[in-house]
Design a protein around this nucleic acid. Structure first.
Lengths: 207, 207
DNA sequence: ACCCGCATCCACCGATCGGTGGATACCGGT
DNA sequence: ACCGGTATCCACCGATCGGTGGATGCGGGT
């Protein structure tokens, strides 16, 4: 019997997942969480074999919850079930230690098969996510340094280079140098495109 | 008996919704659609009292499906059930004629109550969407002209003003004038911020 | 010891940006 | 008839941007 904890913040979605799992002879739903923190607490308390984890939840996200769970209970299997969010958040969850990665768009039988596979110790990946990983292995996404990201965030907010320099207590020349490096890494040559490209890559978010 | 058609592309989510509705004595699920077009076809064929409509679906979106359904069967009630996407897509669905607007984050009882209220001819709104409408009535969101939107899209792609002028076969002065007006409407004074603000408002999308 | 990445800084210069303060013509609504 | 919005266009000018071609110091990994 595979003991499963379901972590999903939308009640209507969680009830669909729970009903699907309960209908299987070999799966037992031992708990339900509606926030990332609740998932961590219940995973530690109930010691399920597997946690079915959404990514976007109130409070801490699914990838942070995954890290925390595995820090205390390293044998717990985590399988992410999400709407496709961004490449960056998927990679964050995989880096956090999730073993399975399916999309809510998948047929229900595929979700059940994924739970069983991950419980056995195998890896379950949606085809689109497998393709993402192959693509990433082939050409790794650019990575910005913390300062480069910080400066690009201020560019996205509409600040000029002198204004950014004043805000960060550095010289304008420093800001320009970081931006030049950022443009090279992102393969662009204009600050507006640098911002939109970083959003496409999940490096920057709106707001 | 309220006859309901469920339009939702994710099988696991749709099964949760269907199970919830079937558990109610006064509601009958007469059909299920997984695309916007399928929703239109089934709504016309089955003539349900109410369509529970997701917004983001393969092919045509929920707001376009809503318009098409109401064009043929104007007495059909449409209630949108979605994850919060953007202000713009919510307003598009309301303009398309949806009478109810709830979020998947709502408790299941609230979803049932909303179905009943909309079936009776009332309006059901999630508190956050009610707040959005009040806010919009108070200070309407800026609207860009088609040309302004087109030029801003090219700005987001990294084109300079001379490059945009060449691409659109107009003068650079024309491009600059449109951008000045765009900055005024969005309350910004820099092209990068104009792009990120337009994205926040749902005027521009990534990619 | 060496190398790389990060963070910092400089001067110069051509190109671009944004604002000002104008202008015309067309279209649709009141 | 009038008005507002849209789309088009101009010259001028100060400020900013991006690229070039440099530089130093620090920390960590090999």
């Amino acid at each position: 019997m595979i003991r499963v904890l379901v972590a999903e913040d939308h009640p209507i979605v969680r009830s669909g997942i729970v009903a699907l799992l309960r209908a299987a002879d070999d799966i037992e739903v031992v708990g339900e969480a509606s926030t990332g923190l609740e998932a961590v607490q219940l995973a530690i308390g109930l010691a399920p074999d597997l946690v079915l984890m959404d990514l976007r939840m109130p409070g801490i996200d699914g990838d942070e919850a995954t890290s925390r769970i595995l820090a205390v209970r390293p044998l717990t299997k985590v399988m992410v079930l999400t709407t496709y969010d961004s490449d960056d958040s998927i990679l964050a969850a995989i880096e956090a230690g999730a073993r399975g990665y399916l999309l809510k768009a998948a047929p229900q039988e595929e979700i059940l098969a994924g739970v069983r596979a991950v419980a056995r110790g195998e890896t379950a990946l949606a085809p689109s996510i497998a393709a993402l990983l192959v693509d990433r292995a082939r050409s790794p996404a650019p990575r910005l340094s913390p300062r480069e990201t910080q400066i690009l965030t201020l560019v996205a907010a509409g600040l000029s280079n002198p204004a950014i320099a004043a805000a960060l207590y550095v010289s304008e020349a420093t800001v320009k140098t970081h931006l030049i490096h950022t443009y090279e890494k992102l393969g662009v040559n204009d600050r507006t495109r640098a911002v939109t490209r970083a959003m496409e890559l999940g490096i920057l978010r709106l707001g």
